[in-house]
Computed example of a mutant assay.
Amino acid sequence: MGTCARTCARGITSAVPSLPGRTLVLVDRSGSMFYSRVSARSEPTRADAAAVFGTVLAARAERANLVEFGTDSRYVPFKHQPVLRVVDSFGDLGGTDTASAVRKHYRDHDRVVIVTDEQAAWGHPTRHVPADVPVYTWNVAGYRHGHGPTGSANRHTFGGLSDAGFSMIPLLEGTRNGDWPF
């Protein structure tokens, strides 16, 4: 991983919210995530950026499961480890089977966060999550592709990736409890 990704990992930790309850964080490690950079002026690939942000989000959550997925998926150990060591343990997992990763790893979590480019090949990724459980998708490619519904009750998709973007999770969840800040 390059210098830019290392700087990114150090700078985002405090800006990412600490989420209560159980969070499933799914990080896309399919081939399409490796061939594009986050932007024309940056060094990290979308795969690098997704791994950094997913790891930091999992580390900041009260109780999280961190999963990398592609054609297959696996848990990524992250507790009590430096972010960059965890990021270095991620692999290249082939195609994009988001739906199978969600089905395999969702276990009554309070929320699901997917960091991806949404170039999913198989099935609807959120159908295995009950309608009352929020699913947040961060599309690191912007709004180029869509792998599932968004804009309804508990399905939200955001284009791009920034540490400030993750602050949307507590804001949106606050609306469900009548805690909207306005």
Rank of each mutant, 00 (worst) to 15 (best):
G174M: 02
G178F: 13
T137S: 14
D110H: 07
I12W: 09
G11D: 09
I12H: 08
P130G: 02
T71I: 01
Q81L: 14
L26D: 12
D163C: 02
R103M: 15
H156N: 07
E43I: 06
L93A: 12
V129E: 09
M168K: 03
G146K: 05
V52A: 04
S39Q: 05
R107G: 04
L66V: 14
L84S: 13
P44D: 11
E118P: 08
V52L: 02
P134Y: 09
G21D: 12
T175G: 04
A101W: 10
S39Y: 00
A101M: 11
T150F: 09
H109A: 13
S18R: 02
G142S: 00
V76P: 08
G2M: 01
M168C: 05
A47C: 14
G54I: 05
H109P: 04
R10V: 05
P170M: 05
A120T: 09
D163S: 12
F166H: 04
S14K: 14
V129K: 08
G11L: 10
V135F: 08
I169S: 11
G178W: 11
H109C: 04
R29Q: 12
Q119L: 07
I169G: 05
L24K: 07
D48K: 01
R46D: 03
L57I: 13
G142E: 02
K79W: 00
A47M: 14
K79M: 04
S167M: 06
H105N: 13
L93T: 03
A50M: 08
L57E: 07
V86P: 13
T137D: 07
S18V: 00
T175Y: 11
D92R: 14
R155W: 00
V38K: 02
F182W: 03
H124I: 09
F90A: 09
P181A: 09
F69C: 07
A58G: 06
A101S: 10
V25P: 07
V38I: 14
D92H: 12
